[in-house]
């Protein structure tokens, strides 16, 4: 059990890359529907590289591209 130092870090969710169209919902972030795992990985990677973000792989297959703002 641990906690990141410096109180609560703030992140922007830049994009959500999912394989399920049911999870394509509104929001500030860009949400993309990938056709397969390979495409999902490639999209996340390219977005993260371009926008200097980090990729978080969620347990049920979705991928988030986030960027720490503080």
């Amino acid at each position: 059990m641990g906690q990141e130092i410096g109180g609560i870090p703030r992140f922007d969710i830049i994009a959500l890359v999912t394989l399920s169209k049911d999870r394509v919902i509104g929001g500030r972030q860009l949400t993309l529907l990938a056709e397969n795992k390979e495409e999902q990985d490639a999209i996340s990677q390219e977005l993260a590289t371009t926008l200097k973000g980090d990729i978080v792989k969620l347990t049920f297959g979705d991928q988030m591209v986030v960027r720490r703002t503080q």
């Binding site: 641990g2 990141e4 990985d41 996340s44 990677q45 993260a48 980090d54 990729i55 978080v56 792989k57």
Partner: peptide, 19 residues
């Protein structure tokens, strides 16, 4: 894709294979 140091959880921000 979760980072641990000496078994202590640190972060899950290393989601990409490159990272």
């Amino acid at each position: 894709n979760d980072l641990y140091v000496n078994g202590i959880y640190v972060t899950n921000l290393l989601g990409s294979d490159d990272a």
